[in-house]
Amino acid sequence: MPDILRGGAILLAVLAVAALPLLADGYWLSIAVTIMMYTALSTSWALFSGPTHYIALSTGAFYGIGGYLVATGMSDFGTSFWTMMAIAPFVAALLAGAIGIATLRLSGVYFVIFTLGLAEMIRNLVSWVQNNFLGSKGLYVLTELEERHIYWMLLAVTLAVFLFGWRLGRSRMGFALRILGNDEEVARHVGIDTARTKVLLFMTTGFFAALVGAIVAPRYYYIEPNVVFSPELSFLVVIMALLGGTRRLYGPLLGVIPFTLLWEVVSASFPSATTMVLGLAFLLIVYLIPDGVTGLIGKLRKRSVP
């Protein structure tokens, strides 16, 4: 019985969230779209980086691939938005697979460094290809989609990420991830193909990030590689996920909501202080709340029980 109640409660919550565009529009709807976008990105990031402790800074690169492929497909090749939206995640997943094979068998430091400059590197490459081979006419993403449609699509992606995470938590692969996050050598010796597990999961992170990037592309109308391949986005996703905590599926959500709101205020009112805020957020997480908000709540709960 409690299962049915819980299911019902989740369904009601989802319906309420889905109904939001009917109540709010303009500014608040755009904030809701941003929150939804970061929820999908941070949650899928945490599915990989949480258990494995590999800090992936590649979100901006995959998100950019999603946005850029939609833009170039529509402007340079006359493809439809929907086709490109379907292709982009697979391209990103393949790229993630290749990066994973090259870097994930080595120590985490190498992986962080490789992903650190990835968005910038792909942006340079893409700009060069665009200028030299495709002509430098503008990349326009003109669709009939309105903000609320984008919101609903992102909600669907977010739900897919949660469902995937929930299934993963109950699967052998999820268990394998927890073991390899604890001790990779033990994981190998109990029979887990650790390299394959890490690469596959990293591919899903790339898949979802590109899907989000593709869906959000119509929001920009005019796409410049500088805008979509954003290193800042990678850092924001890391901060939000760690702030919320990666041990629970809903953890990142608890970081996304407050940080998106804070970020909106800071970038609107104190645009020159954004970098400083990013820095302080990282320091706050490392020194004061290493297990995120969910970890903090867990600790307080334990303390209150005698």
Binding site: R172, F175, A176, R178, I179, G181, N182, D183, V186, V190, G191, I192
Partner: peptide, 16 residues
Amino acid sequence: LPALSVLENAVAGAVF
């Protein structure tokens, strides 16, 4: 495996 329970530690050997 420090973050796993005693039972999970043993199960780890049985699954893979």
